[in-house]
Design a protein around this nucleic acid. Structure first.
Length: 193
DNA sequence: TAACCGATTAGCT
DNA sequence: GCTAATCGGTTAA
C-alpha cells in the first residue's frame, strides 16, 4: 500500500468510536520497531464505562485516552506488566482499545529472546505478553501509531469475528466488548461458543 | 504519606 | 484450578 492509501486507512480508523475500532483492528497488522504481527484480540473501553480507566475523568495516567486517536496508551498493571492500548476518537473523548493478542509474524527471534520461550502461541497471547514481546513500555505512552517506530497496516478482512465479555474486570462485565479472530490459535483465552 | 487496588502471568498442584 | 509476585496510580488523611 502506498503512503496516501495508508493515510486514508488511518483516517478511517481514527473516525471510529472505540467499540467499532476494536472490531476493525482485528486482522490488522501492528509493528513496533519492525516487531509484531496480526491483531487477533481486542477489547473496547468507552468514556462512560465503569470498567474504563477514563471513567473517573482525566488523570495523569489516562491522559493519552483524552488525546488524539490512534495513539498509544501504555499503563503498568499488577506491578508486573505493561499493557498497550490504541486510543479511540473523537479527540478528547476518553476511549481506547486494549490490544490483547497478536499472531506473531515479524521479528520472531527478537520476541523469543524477550519472552524466553520459543512457543509461537505463547509469545503474544495476552496483553502483558504482547507488550513484552514487542518491547513496549512507558516510553511509548502517547506516541502516534501512524508513524515510526510504530506501523499500523490493514490486513485482510477476517473470515469470522468473535465477540464476548471482557476479561479481568470487575465492573460492566455484561458488555460484550471483547473481539477476536475466529479460529485463531493465538488468542489469550478461548471465546465461549 | 500511607493504604488499597488492579484491563496479568507463571508456576505449581 | 489456585496463588504469589510486585509497584504505579488513586484516594483519603
Amino acid at each position: 500500500m502506498n503512503e496516501a492509501g495508508q493515510a486514508d486507512f488511518h483516517a478511517e480508523l481514527a473516525a471510529l468510536p472505540a467499540v467499532e475500532l476494536a472490531r476493525a483492528l482485528i486482522g490488522c497488522h501492528l509493528l513496533y520497531q519492525g516487531v509484531g504481527g496480526r491483531i487477533v484480540e481486542t477489547e473496547a473501553y468507552e468514556r462512560d464505562d465503569p470498567a474504563s480507566h477514563s471513567f473517573p475523568g482525566p488523570t495523569p495516567r489516562n491522559g493519552p485516552m483524552f488525546g488524539p486517536p490512534l495513539s498509544a496508551y501504555v499503563y503498568f498493571c499488577y506491578g508486573v506488566h505493561w499493557c498497550f492500548n490504541v486510543t479511540a476518537g473523537p479527540e478528547g473523548h476518553g476511549a481506547a482499545v486494549l490490544v490483547r493478542a497478536l499472531e506473531p509474524l515479524a521479528g520472531l527471534e527478537t520476541m523469543v529472546l524477550r519472552r524466553k520461550t520459543a512457543r509461537a502461541e505463547n509469545l503474544c497471547s495476552g496483553p502483558g505478553k504482547l507488550a513484552q514481546a514487542l518491547g513496549i513500555d512507558k516510553s511509548c505512552n502517547g506516541a502516534s501509531l501512524q508513524a515510526p517506530p510504530f506501523s499500523l497496516l490493514p490486513g485482510g478482512e477476517p473470515a469470522l469475528h468473535l465477540s464476548g465479555p471482557r476479561i479481568g474486570i470487575s465492573k460492566a462485565q455484561d458488555f460484550p466488548w471483547r473481539f477476536g479472530l475466529g479460529g485463531s490459535r493465538f488468542l489469550s483465552r478461548p471465546f465461549a461458543s
